[in-house]
C-alpha cells in the first residue's frame, strides 16, 4: 500500500494532468449534434493513437541485441501507426460530406 501512495505523490503533477484532462474531455464534448457522433468518435479514435509515442519509446530504448523488445516494439509501432494514420484518414473522409458548397 505504501508503495502505491509513494507512486501517487511521486507523480503528483501527472495526477493533476489526469484529473484536469478528464474535465477538459467532458467539457469539450458536452453539446454535439448527432450527425457528428460517428466522425467525432473516429477523430477521438485517431487521437488515442498517441499510444504510438509509447511504442516508439519501447523501440528506441531497446538494446540492439534485445530481439524480444525489438520485435514486439516493431509490432507495436506498426499497430500504433495504423491507429493514427488510418484513424485520421477515415475521419477526414467522413467529414468530406460537410464540405461547404457555393
Amino acid at each position: 500500500m505504501d508503495s502505491l501512495l509513494v507512486f501517487i505523490s511521486d507523480n503528483m503533477q501527472m495526477v493533476y494532468i489526469l484529473i484536469l484532462s478528464i474535465f477538459v474531455g467532458i467539457e469539450v464534448i458536452s453539446k454535439v449534434p448527432a450527425v457528428l457522433h460517428t466522425p467525432l468518435m473516429s477523430g477521438a479514435n485517431a487521437i488515442h493513437g498517441v499510444v504510438i509515442v509509447g511504442a516508439i519509446i519501447v523501440m528506441g530504448h531497446a538494446a540492439a541485441d534485445d530481439f524480444f523488445a525489438l520485435a514486439l516494439g516493431f509490432v507495436a509501432v506498426v499497430l500504433g501507426t495504423l491507429n493514427v494514420v488510418g484513424g485520421f484518414v477515415v475521419t477526414d473522409r467522413m467529414l468530406e460530406m460537410f464540405k461547404k458548397r457555393k
Partner: peptide, 24 residues
Amino acid sequence: GGFLYDNPVMLTGGILVGSAGTIL
C-alpha cells in the same frame, strides 16, 4: 503509457479520449 514513461502527451491525449469518449 503516460504514467509508465512519465510522458505528458500520452497522458493528456489518452485521458482526453477516455473522458470525451465516455460522454460521447
